[in-house]
Write a protein that binds this DNA or RNA. Sequence first.
DNA 1: TACAGATATTATTATATTTTTATATTCAGC
DNA 2: GCTGAATATAAAAATATAATAATATCTGTA
Lengths: 99, 99
Amino acid sequence: MVQEVRNIAADVLKAMAHPIRLGVIEVLANGERTVTELYSELGCSQSMMSQQLKILCQQKLVAIRKDGTQKYCSLCNRDFLKLFDCMHTHLRQFLNFQD
Amino acid sequence: MVQEVRNIAADVLKAMAHPIRLGVIEVLANGERTVTELYSELGCSQSMMSQQLKILCQQKLVAIRKDGTQKYCSLCNRDFLKLFDCMHTHLRQFLNFQD
DNA sequence: TACAGATATTATTATATTTTTATATTCAGC
DNA sequence: GCTGAATATAAAAATATAATAATATCTGTA
């Protein structure tokens, strides 16, 4: 990886590195959700969710399709779900955190 | 993942989400390096590297052993190297970036 | 066309991160 | 104990991110 690529990769990781945004990815792993479902399920404000979704979409982690007055969100790239397994192991093994 | 776990997972991801810190992980994938080797290879200042290493160590991504006046850095958890594969694919497939 | 539900945008404040520069510490060898 | 190489810490300024509240837009339906 050259410098420029690392900058972009860092931006993608940064987009995931937030509790709510991680939550969105986790929820969407189980299938499509509307924006309202997401912020209800994750317990944050509508405005907050809208902003976090924008960040996830910019990095093409989440895709949104419109249907009438609602928007349906889904994962672009399920490959990154591997990360959750790595993370679980890391938390247990290296940070002594029972999840 | 519950709220608290997501906070911690976000901190781990945040520790990776930086061009230099990504560079460190990448270089260390090829084996142990001293701090001097790292900042020479990655082209940043000694102070910068020292600070970035601290962040990586806090999240147990990098381990440091001392030998005389030098410190040798290595990866704690090679499992996260999977991330680089995911990332390459993502950059190509979703962000149209040739790496 | 007015209303209501769903979502987005903007502005603001608070807080955190990044980067640089200067200084400090640590330790081996003389 | 002094020196120099290797590394760490502190302080400061610039910039970015986070979070909230207020307002705007968009769209289907009465």
